[in-house]
Amino acid sequence: MSIRTQLPGALVLEDGRIFPGVPFGAETDAEGEAVFTTVMTGYQEVATDPSFYGQIVCMTYPLIGNYGVCPEDDQSRRPWIAGMVVREYCDEPSHWRSTGTLGEYLARHGIPALHSVDTRALTRHLRTRGVMRAVLVSDRAGRSDDELRELAGKAWTPNTADVVPAVAGDFRALGPKDAPHVVLIDLGVKEHIIESLLRREVRVTVVPYGTTAKAILALGPDGVVTSPGPGDPVNAAAAVFTVRDLARSGLPFFGICLGHQLLALAAGAQTSKLKFGHRGGNHPVKDLLSGQVHMTSQNHGYQVDAESLPVDQGWQIWMVNVNDGTVEGLRHQRLPVMSVQYHPEGSPGPQDNQYLFDEFLALVRAHWERRQPAASVGLAAQASTGGSE
């Protein structure tokens, strides 16, 4: 497929700014929220991250498409972005795993994109003015700039309603049956989160959004994970009550990204929208308990308001963003509950935060061992010491 140079398109923002570009991908228009991400690789993972649902994503790294696409990199069953905007698009990828071009991939899924856009100017504009409504048009012919601006001002965004049902998956049972059992609430989970759990030899039951705490507890879990997902956490009100009951149950609980925000709401805290969000693979986060700083992969537009956290009820801020001081992690002083605002599986982005799965699963295994019959525990102890005398 050759890059089309005719019928130039544009990204039009609700404040009237127009960024012209050359279309690739699907030959259609899109509406959504214009955002940017600073990841240098992983454009396919970005496209298939459900947290990007309904957003037109500007890739700040200038060269996109150079290593093609392959099915193994999909983070979900389909791409969720509304559109993509890049500076330079490579339509002749070179990589041994590549099964096609990014343009073909987006076209197959009906997603439009633009290249030859001044992405630096666009990113600076969004940092200054904040993320906003936008339309991406593949063909400006026959439409005036004023008409396009009017469309941008009325564009739908994923913050106006509960959009989690659009991306959440179905029930799945995975992993060995005779292992610690983790229930994962799917609010738009990425596959690498599930893989990060399975490679640690636990049983994972994925339950759909809307599953009640009572139904989850009936599955007999040793721990619960609440996944990332799109939209304003306040709109996912039903999940707040589920998370509240699970966090109070005494089970190990791990909230990731949207799961972190829902945990904060369940604790009685508040959330608010960030000006331009945290999206990229290079966000420094400080662990306030250890003093260590970790580079993290992030994709969110909302934050937990630190001053609203009820610290008198045992809640504490665990991690903060080094750049702006926003809350990046929560813990409870008495309950086995933890959460992070970023993506510990690092897809795309750094992998050095995988230790969080180990920390959570240590709590899970301790809970599982307490549930085993005394005879089984004795046999396990004998096996670990080489048998009895």
Results as ranks from 00 to 15, higher is better:
225 V>S: 02
153 G>V: 05
351 Q>C: 10
160 T>S: 15
224 V>N: 08
15 D>I: 05
88 E>F: 08
85 V>G: 00
342 Y>H: 03
230 P>C: 10
325 G>V: 08
323 N>D: 15
145 D>G: 08
140 R>V: 09
240 V>F: 01
175 G>Q: 02
229 G>V: 03
165 P>Y: 11
317 I>M: 03
60 T>E: 12
253 F>Y: 15
180 P>Y: 02
60 T>Y: 05
252 P>T: 03
187 L>E: 10
219 L>T: 08
109 H>Y: 15
303 Q>W: 07
108 R>Y: 03
327 V>K: 04
6 Q>N: 13
111 I>E: 07
223 G>N: 00
165 P>A: 13
281 G>A: 15
65 G>I: 03
365 R>T: 12
127 R>C: 09
304 V>T: 09
278 H>V: 05
188 G>K: 02
256 I>Q: 04
39 V>M: 14
70 C>S: 12
213 A>F: 04
30 A>T: 00
166 A>H: 12
314 G>T: 07
357 F>I: 01
319 M>Q: 06
196 S>H: 11
373 P>N: 05
304 V>P: 06
120 R>I: 11
359 E>V: 06
317 I>H: 07
118 D>P: 01
202 V>I: 05
265 L>G: 12
179 A>Y: 02
100 G>D: 11
305 D>W: 00
177 K>G: 11
17 R>W: 04
361 L>A: 05
38 T>K: 01
249 S>K: 04
297 S>P: 08
284 P>Y: 00
75 Q>K: 14
326 T>L: 10
37 T>I: 14
373 P>G: 07
57 V>M: 02
320 V>I: 14
220 G>L: 08
58 C>N: 08
12 V>T: 03
66 N>Q: 14
155 A>E: 06
164 V>R: 05
209 Y>T: 10
320 V>F: 07
241 F>D: 14
214 K>F: 07
153 G>H: 05
326 T>H: 08
49 D>Q: 07
24 F>P: 01
98 S>A: 15
123 T>L: 01
1 M>V: 10
41 T>V: 12
260 H>S: 07
189 V>T: 13
89 Y>K: 00
148 L>C: 07
205 T>H: 11
200 R>G: 05
71 P>E: 15
157 T>D: 07
163 V>I: 14
347 S>R: 13
262 L>K: 03
227 S>F: 09
321 N>D: 11
206 V>L: 14
230 P>F: 05
187 L>T: 12
327 V>P: 01
92 E>L: 08
